[in-house]
Amino acid sequence: MFASFLTGAVAMGVVYLFGCIGETLIEKAGNLNLGIPGIMSLGALGGAIGVNLYFAIFGTGDIIGIFLMIIAIIMSGLFAALGGLLYAFLTVTLQANQNVTGLVLTTFGVGFMKFIGSSMDQSLLTRASRSIKTLFTFYEDLGVFGQLFFSYGFLVYLAFILAITLHFVLKKTKVGLFLRSVGESPQTADAQGINVTVYKYSAILIGSAIAGLGGLYYVMDRSGGTTFVEANIEAFGWLSVALVIFSMWKPTIGMVGSIIFGGLTILPNYLGISNVQLKLFAMLPYIFTVIVLIVTSILDAKTSKPPQGLGINYFREER
């Protein structure tokens, strides 16, 4: 029981983890992207289009998992990155307000996914989902241990690999150092000879692509490809943004946080409560987020501060 809850928590949390890693990368470059829900939706849509593309190329016979995965990931990342490109162009190049641009992107992305997705063939997604849900087929032989660590699809492992990679890039490499300096103080970074625009664009594009995988993961893996249009990706997007604050902009804490958030999301299903109470307990992750927001702001610890230049566009000539 507990093992299945924990497995479920990890599996659910990965949706948030993708969003969190992507947003962390973007925020480290000094841009607050409130378009994450839209970007995740675009990623979900792109992934679904990728699946359709796969079946168009390889036919609807036996599924070759690896090709399916590659095409879905590429398409999902591409769609999400296009959303990110729009955001980057507006906020970095055209100096538009970041919050407003993000909200427009959310409105657009969520609407676009549901609009295009509503006329899409769901059965293909369901079929595709079945073939990618487990990466290691031997996990059942390993008992609880196998269930906890080897029962997931490829994207789950990818999320954790990306989180650890991002941690190392930010902490141990020159690129990471430069990126952080761009987020903290673009003026200083610019004076140091760092190309602020290139860093911001790259971070936003890569971050968006990663966040988009969260949408792909949800519709393809977590939900089994069935609830595409009804998918509440918007809410997941907001929780991902909140997870960034919870993680104090650290991908490693984000990994743990994602499991907590995921656990709270699925907890009501494990409490053995009635359908009526289930509706009420659906607010758990949101209440937890509110508490997290309040506690982090009260603690106001030095380590939990966002990048200093967050949310402020960089006008080069205002030095």
Binding site: G109, G111, F115
Partner: peptide, 11 residues
């Protein structure tokens, strides 16, 4: 099936 065309246009 869904009236999300308006969100797309508004976006």
């Amino acid at each position: 099936g869904s009236n999300n065309l308006s969100s797309v246009i508004i976006g």
